[in-house]
């Protein structure tokens, strides 16, 4: 029991620190691409502490208060269901048959909570962003789900651990090589999940100033920031486990998640933003078709 709690704490704290560091690195990389110097790598920690210590006197109803908690809870739940390091008992892992489907559902729990809370704030920009976000979510969720189902059917397992175990026979056994189309579809769906640039219609800083968190400040925002850092690490872990053979050591984990994160950042900093209908059309057509190709191939 105690060891379980300790390992949960360890996982969450490591993920939080790594997520915030990744955020700092990504801000630096974006700055270098712009030809700027960029902030400190630790800038996100400073921002987080500053936000945590700001006072807040905003009240918009109960759901407004709950939304950051929803977000952080969803992130932690995803994090605990994904195996962090394969064959390492330091990480507590809620593994059971069929957990991949629960995960698919619970990944969007935080976003839905966020939508309720931001809708409660009553700011028109938040509401616009939420309607865009939910429309976009339903489109990338489709391609990602098909990709996951293709992998699960192909490997005859519904456990994430089983999917990871099937990829341990060298690099050529990674799912990105065994299911190239499904992986490509899922990797495209990864961009809107990370709110990376061609699909960043939810935050859209120049259009609808910052989207859902427009009314959030101080402590709420710090919770939301840490929730976002945790969630992005959880998503990275999930992708590493599903398509890149899992991580056999902490070093491999950091390298793989870092490279995957950089993929989103580099794509993000060279593309302009889609309009809402362009983004949804693209997500319904391209990644869904790619994922379907592999699903049909596996079924036959």
């Amino acid at each position: 029991m105690l060891s379980n709690i300790m390992s949960i704490l360890l996982t969450v704290v490591t993920a939080l620190v790594w997520g915030l560091l990744l955020g700092g690195i990504s801000r630096n990389v974006t700055a270098k691409i712009h030809g700027r110097v960029g902030p400190r790598v630790t800038q996100n920690f400073i921002d987080l502490w500053k936000l945590f210590r700001k006072t807040s006197s905003i009240h918009h109803g109960g759901m407004f208060w709950m939304a950051p908690l929803f977000r952080i809870t969803g992130a932690i739940a995803v994090l605990l269901m994904v195996p962090v390091v394969v064959g390492h008992n330091i990480n507590y892992n809620m593994s059971f048959a069929g957990d991949i489907f629960l995960l698919l559902y619970i990944m969007f729990f935080g976003c839905l909570g966020m939508a309720l809370g931001a809708g409660n704030s009553g700011h028109p920009y938040s509401v616009v962003a939420i309607s865009r976000g939910l429309a976009q979510m339903s489109s990338y969720e489709l391609s990602f789900s098909i990709a996951v189902v293709a992998v699960a059917v192909g490997l005859h397992t519904l456990r994430i651990e089983g999917i990871v175990a099937a990829q341990q026979a060298g690099v050529s056994s990674w799912n990105i090589f065994r299911f190239p189309f499904a992986s490509a579809g899922a990797l495209i769906a990864f961009l809107p999940m990370q709110m990376a640039y061609p699909f960043s219609i939810v935050l859209a800083p120049q259009e609808i100033p910052i989207g859902p968190p427009t009314e959030y400040s101080s402590r709420f925002l710090s919770f939301m920031f840490s929730g976002r850092a945790l969630f992005s690490v959880a998503k990275l872990l999930l992708f590493v486990n599903l398509f890149f053979g899992g991580a056999s050591s902490w070093m491999a984990l950091f390298v793989k998640t870092f490279l995957l994160y950089m993929y989103a950042i580099v794509v993000s900093s060279v593309f302009p933003r889609f309009r809402t209908e362009q983004s949804i059309k693209f997500l319904w057509l391209v990644p869904t078709t790619l994922a379907l190709v592999d699903l049909v191939r596996v079924m036959l």
Binding site: K50, P209, I210, S217
Partner: peptide, 22 residues
């Protein structure tokens, strides 16, 4: 904000909403 003077190196950033600004 752009490359010549780059205020982000001091941790200064633009926020679009007064709720999040200092």
């Amino acid at each position: 904000g752009t490359s010549r003077f780059d205020m982000e190196r001091f941790g200064i950033a633009m926020r679009p909403t007064p709720r999040q600004a200092d």
